[in-house]
Structures are given as C-alpha cells and as structure tokens.
Design a protein around this nucleic acid. Structure first.
Lengths: 217, 217
DNA sequence: TGCTGTGAATAGATTCACAGCT
DNA sequence: AGCTGTGAATCTATTCACAGCA
C-alpha cells in the first residue's frame, strides 16, 4: 500500500477530512462512502478507492467511523503535528496570510516573515516582526521553518524559491504568477489567482461562442 | 476542433501565454514547442497537442510566431476583452484582492465589492465603495458583473455563491474552504490555501516516513 | 440488506514516433 | 535539417460490478 498516490487523491483526502470534521461536530458516528462523496464532489467508488490505497478503514454494512477515519486521514496527511511556515513577501497577499487565523487553526504556524523593503523591516504585522531577507538562512534554521510561502512580485519569486530550497525548506507554496524552477527534492504547489480567473474566462468565452453559433443557425 | 478541452490543457494554455508575453517583451519572433514546454513544466509533445486541439498555428521548421500565437491564445482564453468582477467579502483576502493591481492589468476589473458588516459598508477600499450584500442583485445587474469572487467566511460561502448564480453571474472564484453546490451552468474554480498546504504536508510527511523506514533497515 | 474493498473494464490524458511541410 | 501536427501506443485515473463481511 501507499506506493505513489495521485495528487488528485491527496486533494480529495483533504476534502473528506473537512467533511468528517463537520460531521464530527454534529456527533455523527458513521458515514458511508456515498455520503462522503456527495459534498466532496466525488463518487462513492472514488472515495472507497482513495481510502483503499492506504488500507481498509470501513466496516461493511455500516460505513466509516467518523472519529477514527478523521484520525487516520490526519495521520496520512501529516496533520497530527504543527508545521512551521516562513513567509517571504509582506505585500498585500502576504499581509492577508499573516492575518488569516485559519492557517494557525489548521496546523500551519507562520513563525517568520521576510521582506526586502526597508520600510517594512522591523515592523510588526499581526504580531510578527518582519525580518530582512538577508536573515533568511539564519532565521529559517533557528526557527526550524519547514514550509515556505512565496508572496513576492513575480520577478524575484524564482530567486526567493531557490534560496528557500538551498536553506533547507522542503516545501513551497507559491503565490507569484511564475513557474518556479527548484530542485525536485523541494515540493511546490502554486496558488495562481490569475490562472484560475483565466480558466473561468475560457469557460465563459466558450459558452458565449456556443450561444452565438446557436443563434446563427 | 474544440470539442471538450481538458482542464489541464486550459491551465497550460495560460502558462504558454504568460511565457509568450515574456518572450514578446524581448522581441523574440519565433519559439519552438520545446522551448515553450521548458518553462511551463510541460513536454514539447504536450504543447503541440494542446495547441492542435484548437488548430494549426505553427510553421514547420520554424516554430510558432510569438506575436500571433499570443493573440490566438488570448482569443481562445477570452482575454481580448475585460471581464467585470464582483467581490463578496471584504475581509483580509478580499481587501488584498481589491489592491491586487495585477488583476486589472490582466483584464479582470473588480467593479463592485460587497459585505454584510455595517462597519465596512460605505467605506472606500482601494478606491471602491463597499456595498451592502442586500444590493447584490441590483448592482450586479447595473454594473454587468460577469464573474463573482467569494471571499467570505466558509459558513456563508455556499449561500453567497447561490445568490451570485441566481442573479446571473456565470462564473465564480471561490476562496472559502468549502465545496460550493451551484447550478452547473455556473462555472466554479477554487483557490483553497489550506488544501494546498495540506498537500504539501502530505508530501513532507511521506518523505519523512520514507526516511524513517530507511534508517530502520 | 447494506455497504466496503477490489479486480476488471472503461475512459481520459500523456507520450511516442514519424510523415510531411518549409 | 528542423520543427510541426497527429494517429497510435502507453500510461494513469475513474467507474463498474460484484464477492464477501456485518
């Protein structure tokens, strides 16, 4: 079990966990793959297959125990501990992230923030002091930063990502609209707002093109 | 041509376009599929196949014209016009988005912002006046909002998304960590920061489990 | 009877490999 | 010679369908 898990499965596991936590709050004891599938936008077969990649957690005839499946998924996803996060770029998005309490609540603790702007360095933002980028290595090592967030302008994002990798950060969440080229022992995920909007634009434009061609007939 | 395009292709088209624009700034005239692939994290065959779903835009022996392929991709992605965007939820992320000038530059113009918080209503945020959510329908129709951004707390996100759909908004970008259930004539994309971090957490945890089991042997 | 777990079947996306244009 | 465009082959993911347990 657990030999190369597709990305899409991992994403769905997060969604299942989210639902399980909600159900847990209502003191529900068991849940079926069918019900889990419903809100996660998956099929029941998909739920069962996803879970079966890691083991057999359900009881035939009953479904999955909400509590124990939550624990299992937290274990699988590595959410049984708190991850230390370092943020580079205290601009608009960076600031918003520093204030985003949900991250903390979900086990992602931003322990350091960096910027190159002298006007920002030394300032407190949501209780955290902004450090100069030149202190990156020292602070990352001192604080044990494990995940880096790149929220810089795109021009410097690649360089910053490289520094993070060099300094031992194993995973990067990239908010800059640029592809990062990092050593492949560093995991990267991107949050690309413009890309998502362009995806929506494509769908809207396509829908319109279809409409137009229909009225033409 | 153009019968059901995979999502992954559309995402890559955005990346190709980004690269083409960069190349355009350096006055490059032609680019090969191989080179385009490089920075977009794709393969050359993938570039050619993606493009061939829409037509034949290259010149054999030469590659693709940077200028005309840019135009073609902008046309395909619906980026030859400006889209009117309405933002619901002027919290930390919402505020960051209002200040994010890149959206404007990329053809996504936020023309209205909504919140339920009386303290925010009527205030100017980055030059835009926050309207009460109760005015959603009127303003969406008056301004011709085509894309909605949901940046509310998760508890109300589903409800807000439904309102947006009912009021005629055809596409939604969701920042709330909840699955939205909307009529399927409304396109939805999600930006889910916690989900992305959990994906990274999974990879880090897995890498560690592997390390640990190796040292055990 | 109800629901899981899973091989087998299908659908979907990526990669290969090469003919054909410039 | 160089690079595109594309059918065919491969690889990956999803769905089906059912045996087996509670």
């Amino acid at each position: 079990m657990s030999g190369r898990i597709p990305d899409s499965t991992v994403r769905r596991l997060s969604l299942y966990l989210r639902m399980l936590r909600e159900l847990g709050r209502t003191n529900r004891e068991f849940v079926s793959s069918h019900e889990l599938a419903g809100r996660a936008g998956a099929t029941s077969a998909q739920v069962r297959k996803d879970l079966s990649l890691f083991g057999s957690f359900g009881k035939r005839g009953r479904g999955y125990s909400v509590g124990s499946l939550s624990n299992t998924l937290e274990e699988i996803l590595g959410l049984v501990r708190t991850w230390k996060v370092g943020l580079v770029g205290v601009g608009k998005i960076g600031t918003a992230l520093l204030g985003y309490r949900d991250l903390d609540a979900r086990g992602f603790d931003i322990v350091a923030a960096f910027d190159v702007d002298a006007a920002k360095i030394g300032k407190q933002v949501f209780g955290l002091t902004v450090s100069p980028l030149s202190d990156l290595e020292r602070i990352v090592k001192e604080c044990g930063v494990e995940i880096g967030i790149v929220a810089t302008p795109p021009e410097v994002a690649a360089e910053v990502a490289k520094s993070l990798g060099d300094v031992g950060v194993g995973a990067i969440l990239n908010f800059a609209p640029t592809e990062l080229q990092v050593s492949d022992c560093v995991a990267v995920r991107a949050v690309d707002i413009v890309l998502e909007l362009e995806g929506l634009s494509y769908l809207l434009a396509t829908a319109r093109r279809l409409d137009a061609s229909k009225t033409d007939e």
